[in-house]
Design a protein around this nucleic acid. Structure first.
Length: 418
RNA sequence: GGGGGGGUUCCCGAGCGGUCAAAGGGAACAGACUGUAAAUCUGUCGGCGGACGCCUUCGGAGGUUCGAAUCCUCCCCCCCCCA
């Protein structure tokens, strides 16, 4: 299979882009994929009603799979979420209620659907929910059908279990790997799936699935893991002051999403261009060659590409325009986060700046707002505010809005209507 | 079941009757420097009030005391050792 001009194969592209960490039998998998379309899957946990940046890597992994003519399956864990994956965790997370899970599933499915071409045609992707085959499974049946193929001795040797021997691991979580292994079996049986892709913390779970398929005499299946992506500063992706960077526009506006990528560490630009965009190697290498201040151009391309992928080309352009407006250089400010007020609000004494900062959600408390002003971190229409008592009045309105800046990077507009 | 250790502010981690909103570090935020980067330096970093002020916090609930994160009682959770 070679539907792409830039790379001889899916695996070659995964390697070049930095998705390739470990593979169960690379040579055999390469051979299989060269022979014809292969069905592969990646899982997504419904732990929130939106995916965040961290899920972008498996999403891109599936996307590349499809672009190379193979068939991607996105599986959402409506069943496994009932149990909770202990991998990479030091203690049991709060159990989600069934209602939570179902709500989260709906949100996540809608998002995933935007990235992959789903359908019944050749190469069309599939989206499935393991809740469909896990939730109603009878315990005794499951133990007899699946449980008998698992060795507790081997399970205890798994890293995800070993690391929990000190702090404790509930029997509930201990079962997780079996459920995930069963998923692979089901997907293989029902959809001919031969490959599972996941983060390196999923290696154990993936191997369990491969083992199970082998024990039941299925055709050989394969696993591929990508590295856990960290920033150059050693942090998990997507950590910001405001919390996680979500893929949902209501949780993280396209403008803020765009800004996240523009503000990426210099050292991360090249790596991220490879991982999170579909740009061809020549273009990526061109951008990687930009050094020093010029790397801002590369970051802008990165931001534009990723934002377009997640929110659409139009939203990405609007975010770019807004960023230009906010950081000088013209542009259209329409997409800068804004809150709406009426002219009446500003009549007479107007509004206390401190209160506005709080109500707009820019700071968490008045104390923080005051502190910010005291430190010279707040600007109104570009002018630093020195007075904590500063009030916003009609005279502050310019072109129907008041421009607030917090620090050097955060911008917020008050749109005045009426 | 028996014995020992422990649960402190976002995280790690001191404190062990008043001077504790609680050392130190990390994270975070602001300022300087810069390139909407990194590093560095400075400052801030529970809430409310303009301020010497008030309120809430040290696993939970009571109690002792003029006064408790610090002492006592009961309870919950975690770790270690023995059975």
């Amino acid at each position: 299979m070679n539907a792409r001009p830039d790379f001889p194969s899916y695996l070659a592209e995964m390697k070049w882009r930095g998705f390739f960490e470990q593979c169960t039998d690379e040579a055999a998998l390469a051979e299989l994929m060269a022979a014809g379309p292969v069905t592969g899957y990646a899982g997504f946990d419904p732990t929130a009603d939106s995916l965040h940046i961290g899920s972008l890597v498996p999403i891109m992994g599936l996307l590349h799979l499809q672009r190379h003519g193979h068939r991607p399956i996105a599986i959402v864990g409506g069943g496994t979420a009932m149990v909770g994956d202990p991998s990479g965790k030091t203690e049991l997370r709060r159990l989600l209620t069934v209602d939570d899970i179902d709500r989260n599933l709906a949100g996540i499915r809608a998002q995933l659907g935007r990235f992959l071409r789903l359908g019944d045609g050749p190469g069309d992707g599939l989206m499935v929910d393991n809740g469909d085959w896990l939730r109603d499974k009878s315990y005794i049946d499951f133990l007899r059908d699946v449980g008998r193929h698992f060795s507790v001795n081997q399970m205890l040797a798994r890293d995800s279990v070993k690391t929990r021997m000190e702090t404790g691991l509930s029997f509930l979580e201990f079962n997780y790997m079996i459920l995930q292994a069963y998923d692979f079996l089901v997907l293989n049986r029902d959809h001919g799936c031969r490959l599972q892709v996941g983060g390196s913390d999923q290696w154990g779970n993936i191997c369990s699935g491969i083992d199970l398929c082998r024990r039941l005499g299925r055709a050989e299946v394969y696993g591929l893991t990508y590295p856990l992506i960290m920033t150059a500063a050693g942090e998990k992706m997507g950590k910001t002051a405001a919390g996680a960077v979500w893929l949902d526009a209501d949780r993280t506006s396209p403008y803020d999403f765009f800004q996240y990528w523009v503000n990426v560490d210099d050292r991360d630009v090249g790596r991220f261009l490879r991982l999170y965009t579909l740009l061809p190697p020549v273009r990526v290498q061109e951008l990687e060659a930009l050094q020093g201040a010029d790397s801002r151009q590369a970051k802008q391309v990165l931001a534009l590409e990723v934002t377009a992928l997640v929110h659409g080309a139009e939203a990405a352009q609007a975010a770019l325009a807004a960023a230009r407006a906010a950081f000088g250089g013209g542009g259209d400010a329409a997409s800068i986060p804004a809150s709406v007020h009426t002219a009446a609000d500003l009549a007479a004494d107007g509004l206390a700046l401190i209160d506005v900062l709080v109500s707009a959600g820019l700071v968490e408390s008045k104390g923080e707002a005051r502190r910010l002003v005291r430190q010279g971190g707040v600007r109104v229409n570009g002018e630093a505010v020195a007075d904590e008592q500063r009030r916003l009045v009609a005279a502050d309105v310019q072109d129907g809005r008041i421009v607030l800046q917090l620090g050097k990077k955060r911008h917020h507009h008050l749109r005045i209507e009426g």
